[in-house]
Simulated assay, not measured.
Amino acid sequence: MDPSGTVLISERLRLRPFVMEDAPAVAGLAGAREIARCTTRIPHPYQEEMAREWISTHAGGWARREHAIFAVSQKDTESLIGAVGLEKIHREFFHAEIGYWIGVPFWNRGFGTEAVAAVVTYGFSTLDLHRIYARIMSGNRGSAKVLEKCGFSHEGTMKEHVYKNGKFVDIEIYGILTDEPAPGCNEPGKESSAGVSMSSRRELFRS
């Protein structure tokens, strides 16, 4: 089964793989100063060519079962509003790191929480992960609230772990285990939100 065609559907969102045509929208949304200020890896300015280069890496990551990165779009309009995904998928240790950003015009509407909850469900129910973790910049209370609403617990602080905006910044670690499901997670034995039955989950990312 090819996982690169995976689409996740939630109440208001459609999560799908990125396509190159998304590059202008990605550059427009991720290029906001507010996004760069609260993320460790998105620079400012963020140009369309950077978005194209980033999107071009996705197919290989899906094929190697190393990541599962989704474009976050509104279900009713299909408009792109952000990104969410699992990276560093470790099939031996059954864990992965989740990352996400939502465009500034769409903040404070619960979209980040809804997208993260859908991907956590996918990671546990379909990819058979045992643990999902996140690393966020200290002081990014909005992102912390998203994780807490999705059942993540604060696990510790990496002191002055990254250099950002001319200074060293602490990184906060959050994590969730498979028996600590996010709100709305599917129960064992039910169809996953990706349309992949539980019986086929091991074949998806272990073949």
Results as ranks from 00 to 15, higher is better:
Ala27Ile: 05
Met50Ser: 15
Ala96Gly: 09
Gly60Gln: 11
Met137Ala: 14
Ile102Gly: 00
Gly28Thr: 03
Leu15Phe: 02
Glu11Val: 06
Arg12Glu: 12
Gly85Gln: 07
Thr57Tyr: 09
Leu86Ala: 01
Gly82Lys: 01
Val104Asp: 08
Glu34His: 10
Met50Thr: 05
Ala25Lys: 12
Arg64Ala: 15
Arg91Pro: 05
Ala63Asp: 10
Tyr122Glu: 05
His44Ile: 06
Arg33Gly: 07
Pro24Ile: 12
Ala59Ser: 07
Lys88Gln: 11
Cys38Phe: 09
Val119Arg: 00
Met50Pro: 07
Val72Ser: 06
Phe111Tyr: 13
Phe94Ile: 11
Val7Phe: 14
Pro17Met: 01
Glu21Pro: 05
Tyr122Val: 10
Ser73Lys: 11
Ser4Asn: 09
Gly103Asp: 04
Ala63Lys: 12
His44Met: 10
Gly5Lys: 08
Arg12His: 07
Tyr46Ile: 07
Ser4Lys: 10
Tyr133Asn: 04
Tyr46Leu: 11
Ile35Lys: 04
Ala27Leu: 09
Leu80Gln: 10
Val116Pro: 00
Leu29Gly: 00
Gly123Ser: 13
Val116Leu: 00
Gly60Cys: 12
Thr57Gly: 14
Ala117Arg: 04
His67Phe: 10
Trp62Val: 03
Pro45Cys: 15
Ser79Arg: 13
Arg12Cys: 11
Lys75Ala: 08
Ile89Met: 12
Ile35Tyr: 10
Phe106Ala: 14
Ala134Leu: 03
Lys75Phe: 13
Glu49Tyr: 12
Ala117Asp: 06
Glu78Met: 12
Glu53Gly: 04
Leu127Val: 03
Gly99Cys: 09
Val120Asp: 02
Pro43Asp: 14
Pro43His: 04
Pro17Asp: 02
Asp76Lys: 08
Gly103Gln: 05
Ile81Tyr: 00
Phe18Gly: 00
Phe18Cys: 02
Met50Gln: 15
Ala32Asn: 07
Ala27Thr: 08
